[in-house]
Amino acid sequence: MSHTAHIPSHRKPRRSASKLALRAGVAGGVLSTIAVAGAAGPASAEPVTETIEMPTLGSLGTDLSSAVAASAEASQQEALDQSLEAQEAAALQTAAKEAKKAKAEADRKAEAERAEKARQEAEAKAERERAEAEARAEAQARASRDSARTQLTSTSASSSDSGSSSSGSSAGSSSESTQVSSGTAASIVAFARAQVGDAYVTGGTGPNSWDCSGLVQAAYAAAGIDLPRISYQQSSMGTSVSLSNLQPGDVLYWGSRSGSYHVAIYVGGGKYVGAQNSSTGVVERSLDWDPPSGAVRLL
């Protein structure tokens, strides 16, 4: 170890450059003030006794701190203002998007409502046109049936007059009777076919709605033949015939002969006319569509 190591240093602490500059500036300012005052006054002037206060280091630090604080506050306020402006801009943009979305949704709903209204109007128009077409068809069918009934009535009256005025031998009487029967069967068949398309109504006896026995009774009545009203009573009359030997005008029945629950009229060609049910009304169908149980001949 050096023999001078324990000797304390006599050097003064090194001052920072900023402090030295600050002190030099203050001293320079004081000297400049004194020199100006001395040069301005006359030689005989009284000595200057006014004391000039120079700023101290402490007041300079306070002013500097206030300036820094004010600058920081201003910067903070500016940053806050910018943040508020950004938030306002974002809120306006969001509101604009929401308004645009709401308008699009309103337009979509309005368009859907217009389309639905147009569809309903089209359906209503189609329904009206269909109803009018059905009404016209029904009127035409009714007129056709009325015409057929008028012709049947005339034919039946003519057949009756011919039968009442006939005379001659037994052979001639037999031939005339056969012709009357044929004419009667044709009248029955024509009347039954004229009702095809009419409605089925339980207990219906015409003129535009029928049940099965009501139609059979009316068809025979058009030919001048009285039948009971009930189906099993009708099928109990006349002579039983085979389904392979049917003739137009024969009464078909379903069930037993004395206990039938449904009747119809054979119209030839393997077909019959009957008031089936409320779904089909009066129809002309093949025997194969609903084969009967048996048949009776009343002519």
Rank of each mutant, 00 (worst) to 15 (best):
D288A: 13
S144V: 08
S9A: 06
R145D: 06
A148G: 07
S231R: 11
N208M: 11
N245L: 07
P47S: 09
A70W: 09
V267R: 01
K97H: 08
T51K: 13
E134T: 07
V282I: 15
K103N: 00
D290E: 11
T51D: 05
L287E: 00
S75M: 13
R11S: 04
Q233G: 01
W210G: 03
K109E: 01
A43F: 04
G204W: 06
K19T: 01
E113V: 12
R285V: 05
S83Y: 13
E50I: 15
D161I: 15
A99L: 14
G28L: 08
R14G: 00
V26A: 12
P13M: 11
T150V: 08
R257N: 00
H10C: 07
A194Y: 00
D161Y: 15
T56E: 09
S18Y: 05
P292Y: 08
A124Y: 11
V196D: 00
L80P: 02
A137G: 09
L252R: 01
D161A: 15
Q247C: 04
A104S: 12
S235V: 04
A79V: 15
A27N: 13
A122R: 15
N277T: 05
E176D: 08
E121Q: 15
E53Q: 08
S293L: 12
S59H: 13
R142Q: 08
S235F: 02
L20A: 09
Y220G: 02
A99Q: 10
D161H: 14
L80V: 01
S75L: 13
T94G: 04
D288C: 11
A91R: 12
G38C: 05
S244M: 03
S260C: 05
R257G: 00
G281H: 04
R257A: 00
R193Q: 12
A104Q: 09
S166T: 11
R193M: 06
S187K: 10
S165E: 05
S182L: 09
I52G: 02
P248C: 04
S165D: 09
G268R: 14
L243R: 14
S18G: 07
E123L: 15
A67P: 01
E53C: 11
R128K: 03
P55I: 13
G281A: 06
S175P: 00
R142K: 10
L246A: 01
W289G: 02
S9I: 12
G281F: 13
A218H: 06
G294H: 07
A112C: 05
A110F: 05
L92W: 12
G270I: 11
S293Y: 10
M1F: 08
Q179E: 15
V189L: 07
Q93G: 00
L80S: 10
A110V: 10
A141C: 03
S173G: 08
A137F: 01
L57V: 15
E98C: 02
V30G: 03
A131I: 14
A133H: 14
P8H: 04
G294C: 09
P292M: 10
S260A: 13
